[in-house]
Design a binder for these strands. Sequence first.
DNA 1: ACCCAGGTGTTTC
DNA 2: GAAACACATGGG
Length: 219
Amino acid sequence: MDAYELLKILKQHYPLKEPYWWAGAGSFEIVVGAVLTQQTKWENVERSLKNLLDAGTLELEKIASSELYVLEELIRPSGFYRKKAKVLKTLCENIVADFGDFEAFKQDVDRQWLLSQKGIGAESSDSILNYACFRDVLVVDSYTNRVLANFGYEFESYDELQEYLMSSLDARVYKLYPKDTTLAQIYARFHGKIVEFCKEHLKGKNIDESGLELLKTLK
DNA sequence: ACCCAGGTGTTTC
DNA sequence: GAAACACATGGG
């Protein structure tokens, strides 16, 4: 098994409707979603995003200048709401202070800057880099870890798992997609397919019978 | 009534 | 450093 083979199987069974899988890719919304989805079901994140949208607060400058308690109530459905409200507000203040606006942020931000932000770890950083900024970064998560563990792979760290997957997705992957597809987009879709697969087949720590059946074809 | 979810930071051996 | 804990809502 290598990541190329895994991608081929998932691609076959999980065609994605969104070109970058994550709805709103390239927009500020991704930054918010990346924080809100930490250890949280996406359905709950959507409630929060809708609250923010309805309140006219789903914008960089608005969140930066929001009162904390207002933000807390708007994002309450996605859990850890006191912590996440603080993280979001501080992050947005820092984006404005260091980059000016979202477009400049998209252009100039790097992984180190993101990782230096309170409440933004490796996965959130990479989600923002790939899905908001379209950088050539593959997001890995607990799902990715569990799928790979099923093949007997053990990794010391997030970075090690990411390195392994990114280095095993070589030039062959381009041939699986239309000509104008970018590497960033292929990474985006690969991660998305893993999530979709896990939502359907992962029960707790284990992959269910039909999921194993699907993976068996490349074991 | 439990268990889990697209993590991250802090505290404790 | 690894392991345990805190953060919290909503759905199965």
